[in-house]
Amino acid sequence: MDPFDLGPHAGFIIASYTVTFGVVAALIAWVLIDRAQQRAALNDLERQGISRAGQRQDKS
């Protein structure tokens, strides 16, 4: 069995895996970029001395 010989329909198989890889990569990028943005916003607000409701209870 040669895994690099995908037969006459290789284009469909490669396209399927490429689309899947692209969508999964986009999801991972979305989660990581969103996290960085929210973290940066939180840090910025905390630097301004703004605390959120319930912050004291969280620490206890």
């Binding site: 989660v31 996290r35 929210q38 916003a41 939180l42 607000l45 703004i50 959120r52 409701a53």
Partner: peptide, 26 residues
Amino acid sequence: LFFTLHLAAMRNEIFRRRVRSMRMKA
């Protein structure tokens, strides 16, 4: 993969709501 991304996205959403709440407080 779904559970990994779901937990990570939930964490982001909690952060987003904290940011919103803090901005409203400000």
